[in-house]
Amino acid sequence: MSQPLLRVENLRTHLFLKRGVVKAVDGVNLHVDAGETLGLVGESGSGKSMTSLSILRLLPRQSGRIVEGHIWVDGVDLASLSEEEMARDWRGRRVSMVSQDPMTSLNPVFTVGDQVGAPFRYHGLAHGARAVREAAVKVLRRVRIPSPEKRLDDYPHQFSGGMRQRVVAAMAIACAPRLLIADEPTSNLDVTIQVQMIALFRELQRDSGLGIILITHDLGVAASICQRVAVMYAGRIVEVGDVRTIYRSPAHPYTQALLNAIPHLGQRRRRLHAIAGQPPSLIDPPVGCRFAARCSRRTAQCDAEYPPEVELASGHKVACWRPGPEAA
């Protein structure tokens, strides 16, 4: 078996706040192959964004710390690098990010050309104003911005919301990264713009062998882009598998509940199966399964001990004492 592009091993990231230590990521294992998109699905506070910030080493400086675990990319453990090495060779270069809000990702006082050109200048991939400009045009063309030569000297506010998100994507792929982390890249966009971004993501991945981690709370978006999906709950991955398995035959009660808890197009006035209660506190998480309190299959064992991860089929892993199809 070949080395995956990214392998995260037993990652624990804690936030040291005054009210306590929040165990935001508490033992996460995952891998992403080259040319593959892994969906990281979960609710707010499930640890999906903290996982991605850990990989990029962009945790809140005062409070966030990786307390345990490894993040292997190309045989290098990012968790052990110094901030200087991370900034020089990795962040924005080989590991890159698209965030949710294109407005805050772009500086309103610089032209789009300046900002898209910045990664080339910073990482020394293009020398001289002309070369930087050419490189910027090329990458803007890749994200399908019409007539990029003319738009280089425009400012972000002159672009529409969808086009701005494309510019952000262009900045992220400027240095031809190996791994791209996309944190809710479409959640602020309207559906008719979102579908265009979905097309762009698929294209990027197909053309460049880029590995992508797509972080989203939207099960529909994950289904439309990802090959594999990992479901996070309360700081841990509870189920991971290829996209068809996760949507067709999910084995973890939380995955099943999540799929049943939202209205789907084509389903009319059917009562939704609500998940009672709410996620546990991550300052003092339960010792057993973290979903137990809300789970319909709960037993004494679920409360006593965290379930080990079992592999139900090749690549389909579930952390549950009683995995399996939903009871009818």
């Binding site: 979102q194 529909g220 978006v221 439309s224 996209v243 949507y247």
Partner: peptide, 11 residues
């Protein structure tokens, strides 16, 4: 345009 939670029925 709505993405559906079904990998085989995508927009």
């Amino acid at each position: 345009s709505v993405p559906r939670p079904d990998p085989d029925h995508q927009p």
